[in-house]
Simulated scan of single mutants.
Amino acid sequence: MICGTDEAGRGPIAGPVVAAAVILDPNNPITGINDSKKLSEKKRLALSEEIKQKALYWAIAQCDAEEIDAINILQASLLSMKRAVEALPVSPSKVLVDGNKLPQLNVPAEAIVGGDALEACIGAASILAKVERDRQMLEWHALYPEYDFAKHKAYPTKAHLAALTEHGPCPIHRKSFGPVARLLATPDK
């Protein structure tokens, strides 16, 4: 009952940080799991469905932009991982966390730098979190097409920063993040 947990969305300047927790079935292995950033979108989508079908348990949780602004992105990342682990219908015997910091959990946990490429359960969580966050960014794109969230998923690309400057921030922008905070500090926006 070893659980892996990871998050997606620390770097973007809009939208939630999304985490997943996954307990894989050792008797039903999944081939191709890796750090979600090393996989194509098509492969991530296929693996996400396979993980949801074959894993013993999985859960997804998040912190929205307002929570990120209130407690900072590191704390929001840890909180979203905690929420994902606690959303599982069972308590894992151990939690493996991608990174060098641990969320506050009531079970033994170990932080593993680069764990999403080293431990299949963390890689699986990485995939579920990334696919869910990308799905949400497509929904936000439909509401705020001027920012082109479908293309850059709210990362601070040149095009996103230009749209931010032209239109000002929308409700899902993280007000505490540099480019948004600087824009909000200017009197004309």
Rank of each mutant, 00 (worst) to 15 (best):
W140D: 01
K82E: 06
A111W: 02
K82C: 07
D69E: 11
I60T: 14
D98A: 13
Q62K: 14
L47T: 02
A59C: 11
K43Y: 00
N106I: 04
I112K: 08
R10S: 00
G114W: 10
L118Q: 14
A120R: 14
A61Y: 11
E86W: 13
P89Q: 06
E86D: 09
A163M: 07
A70V: 01
G168E: 02
L102T: 06
L24A: 11
T5W: 06
K151Y: 13
A21Q: 11
R182T: 05
S77Q: 06
P187A: 15
K42V: 07
L184R: 13
D25C: 14
A46Y: 07
N72S: 11
H160Q: 13
L39A: 04
V107M: 09
I13H: 03
A181I: 07
Q104N: 10
L128R: 10
M81V: 04
K82G: 01
L24W: 12
V85R: 13
E41N: 12
L128F: 12
D98F: 08
K94Q: 03
T157H: 09
K130F: 04
R10P: 00
L143A: 13
P108E: 05
I73R: 07
K175W: 00
N34M: 00
A154R: 04
L24P: 14
L138G: 05
S36A: 14
K38S: 00
Q136T: 08
L105I: 11
L128V: 13
Y147N: 06
S40M: 05
S80N: 05
G15K: 11
D148R: 12
A125G: 08
R174G: 03
Y147C: 06
I30V: 12
D69A: 15
L102C: 06
C3V: 04
H152C: 10
L161A: 07
A87S: 13
A76M: 04
K189P: 00
G178D: 02
L128C: 10
E166M: 09
K37D: 03
I60N: 09
A150F: 12
A19T: 06
S176Q: 09
E66V: 15
K158I: 02
H167R: 14
A154Y: 09
S80H: 03
V97N: 02
I2N: 07
S77E: 03
G123M: 02
A65Y: 03
N34G: 01
R174S: 05
D188W: 11
C121S: 15
I33G: 09
G123C: 03
W58H: 15
D25T: 12
V107L: 04
V22M: 10
V180H: 02
A159L: 08
D6C: 09
I60K: 14
E146F: 09
K82A: 10
A21L: 15
P89L: 04
A84K: 15
R174F: 04
A124C: 13
I13W: 10
S80R: 04
L96I: 14
L56A: 01
M81W: 02
L56D: 01
S80E: 01
V95W: 03
A129D: 02
D148E: 13
L161H: 12
A125P: 10
C63F: 05
K94A: 00
R135P: 00
L56C: 06
K52S: 13
P169E: 01
L24Q: 13
L143P: 01
A120G: 05
V97K: 04
N100H: 10
V17K: 03
I71S: 05
A150Q: 08
L24R: 15
T157S: 15
A46D: 04
T31S: 15
Q62W: 11
A181E: 06
A117F: 05
P108S: 09
